[in-house]
Amino acid sequence: MEFVQEMIAQYGYLALYCLLALGIIGLPIPDEVLMTFVGYLASMGILRYTAAVVVSLLGSMSGMILSYELGRKIGKPLVWKFGKWIWLTPKRLEKAEGWFNRYGMWAVSFGYFIPGIRHLTCYLSGVSGMKRTTYWLFASIGAVVWCVLFITIGYFIGVQFV
């Protein structure tokens, strides 16, 4: 977390954008802690609340779109080749795709709130062939709620200490 604090202190909104995009793709960045910290910084006047929300939204959506496209372009061949190592057989993949085609759009929206799942839903959306417009709509809804919620929590925590 110290690294994250230093990055934001030195590079501001650019660091926030990059850290969120990379965190959504799957790098081990504590996204919820980062967002709460950003809200705290906004309460201290170091960052502007609205700008922090917009940049966070753009960063998280960039990561989600990149993960989706990776899943769409290289997902199935990668799963077919290495899926056996994680007990993902073609039959299980077909079953997962069926479930994902029925409920995946909601998993994308609510997956933001479950660390680990957030990263998989993006990738699996692409692998399952979910339509881009559907994916972007539900990913956007989840991103807006997630960003606003955690930044606001951090903001009000910061207000309590000022």
Rank of each mutant, 00 (worst) to 15 (best):
P115F: 14
I151L: 11
F150T: 00
T152S: 07
D31P: 03
A9G: 10
I86L: 12
I29Y: 10
E2A: 12
L70K: 01
S125Q: 04
L41A: 05
G129I: 04
L22W: 09
M1K: 12
L47K: 00
V127R: 09
K91V: 05
I157W: 01
Y49T: 09
I29G: 03
W106E: 02
C122Q: 12
V33P: 02
S56W: 01
P30N: 01
Y17C: 04
A21R: 00
M1C: 05
F100W: 08
I24D: 05
Q5T: 11
F110W: 14
E94T: 11
I24A: 01
K84Q: 07
Y123P: 03
L57T: 12
L22Y: 06
G23T: 00
L137I: 15
M61P: 04
L14M: 13
Y68E: 03
W99P: 00
A139S: 10
V53P: 07
H119E: 11
G63C: 08
F100V: 08
L120G: 11
Y68D: 05
M64D: 07
K84D: 08
R102G: 01
G59P: 00
T50L: 13
G142W: 04
G59N: 12
V148K: 04
K76W: 07
R132Q: 14
Y123F: 15
F138L: 01
A52W: 13
A143G: 03
F110K: 03
K81H: 08
A51K: 12
I8V: 15
W85E: 11
G12E: 04
M7W: 15
F100A: 10
G83F: 07
K91Y: 05
K73F: 14
A21N: 09
R132I: 09
M61L: 14
E69C: 06
F3N: 06
V38E: 10
A96V: 04
L66I: 13
I24Q: 03
G154I: 00
L34D: 01
Y155L: 00
G59M: 14
D31H: 05
A96T: 10
L66A: 10
S125P: 01
W106Q: 01
F161A: 05
W87M: 06
T134L: 13
